[in-house]
């Protein structure tokens, strides 16, 4: 299949989501806005896990760093939307760089546990310094921050469009990245690290690059989530939010550009529907994880790629 087809497919999704702004009923409209922001998080996670093979169990620290980098600047200093977002992104870059320099000295199971531990430490730190972070309760983002170029970001329509724009930019960036030689070297490292080193690629630096890109996109998503939906809380930095992107990416298809969105969409509605029935909605996530690892290890889009469209990026 030629490049025209997959550009068509991805741009088609973007167009479809734009059309959704005009036709979706209010409740779904709000849901899809949320899903698009969360899909950005999943796309960021996918760059580390899906493409580079770095299975992190601590990406919530990057999501949380973005959220709190943005939120604290807004909460304590009444920063505008752009400087606050910039602070969130910078927090993500710095944290992923530091974590990468340390955690990438390990691999496999150790890497999973180290990332989990770092993330736990950050989540507990957010709870501990409650004078600054408001601890478990979290805080509401002041309305002064939630204005951008004359738009009120608490308004449903503006919120959807900003989420859509962010989603589109990150989707296109991911598509570009994985076709670029960097993205191809990420895949080479995932498949056979020793061989890639002996082709002259510095494994550590490349993985560090992948992790920083991944962490930064995750932080961008965390910052945007707080900005658009108006709340920052320590739960977003907790273990559950490290498991979610893994779940979304596994369900949608690791190492595919569309997989994270598809996975986030399915899981969001699965949990949305089941939380109407029971408080134990995470049961669905648990069952999904087990069934996925057993029966659908490539995920939904991954199956399509494997069976029908092998060149799908």
């Amino acid at each position: 299949m030629t490049a025209r087809y997959y550009w068509g497919l991805h741009l088609g999704l973007i167009a479809l989501l734009f059309a959704g702004h005009f036709v979706l009923p209010a409740y779904q409209h709000g849901n899809v806005a949320r899903i698009m922001v969360l899909a950005v998080y999943a796309m960021g996670y996918n760059i580390a896990f899906g493409y580079t093979g770095l299975l992190s169990l601590g990406h919530a620290m990057f999501f949380g760093a973005g959220m709190y980098g943005m939120g604290l600047l807004s909460y304590h200093f009444d920063a505008g939307a752009l400087p606050a977002m910039a602070a969130g992104i910078v927090a993500g870059v710095v944290l992923s760089l530091v974590v990468g320099l340390l955690a990438l000295r390990t691999a496999g199971v150790s890497f999973m546990i180290v990332t989990l531990m770092f993330s736990q430490a950050l989540a507990m730190t957010l709870v501990y310094f409650r004078d600054i972070t408001r601890g478990d309760e979290g805080f509401v983002i002041p309305s002064a921050t939630r204005r951008l170029w004359g738009m009120d970001l608490s308004d449903e329509a503006h919120r959807y469009l900003i989420a859509w724009a962010l989603f589109s930019v990150v989707l296109i960036f991911t598509l570009w990245l994985v076709r670029h030689r960097w993205g191809r070297v990420f895949v080479a490292l995932r498949e056979n690290e020793e061989r890639a080193s002996l082709l002259g690629y510095d494994a550590f630096r490349t993985k560090l690059g992948a992790l920083v890109i991944s962490g930064t996109i995750s932080a961008l998503s965390g910052a945007a989530y707080a900005l658009l939906f108006g709340y920052a809380g320590a739960t977003f930095a907790g273990v559950q939010y490290s498991i979610f992107p893994l779940l979304w990416v596994l369900l949608g298809g690791a190492g595919t550009v569309l997989g994270p969105f598809v996975g986030a969409l399915f899981m969001f509605y699965l949990i949305d529907l089941s939380s109407g029935v029971t408080d134990a909605y995470m049961l669905i996530a648990g069952v999904a994880l087990v069934l996925l690892t057993l029966f659908l290890p490539h995920g939904l889009v991954g199956e399509v790629k494997r069976r029908l469209w092998r060149d799908l990026p």
């Binding site: 498991i243 909605y281 995470m282 049961l283 648990g286 069952v287 087990v290 069934l291 690892t293």
Partner: peptide, 14 residues
């Protein structure tokens, strides 16, 4: 590890 994370949520939520 992914499967035991799933098991964790199943047992806890059940």
């Amino acid at each position: 590890i992914v499967a035991t994370i799933g098991l964790l949520y199943i047992l806890q939520q059940a």
